[in-house]
Amino acid sequence: MQVRFSGGKTEEVTFREGTVEDLLNHIGINPVEVIVSRSGAIIPDDTWLYENDEVLITRIVHGG
């Protein structure tokens, strides 16, 4: 699966299918700290994803 991150980085992640939360746990990201979109649409954490989906993970940046 192709995963884009806010800030411009793109990574190819081995993930066949599962929920957004499964994907985030798989790549070591806490769902509380990000918002995920698929094809430009924001999606909830229990949305089912497939291998050929393109997702964008936006990290919610905080100050100090």
Partner: peptide, 16 residues
């Protein structure tokens, strides 16, 4: 691109 299970709004049944 697949759009299998897309959760629906509990209030109005549109895309959540």
């Amino acid at each position: 691109m697949s759009h299998g299970h897309s959760p629906r709004c509990s209030e109005c049944d549109t895309t959540a």
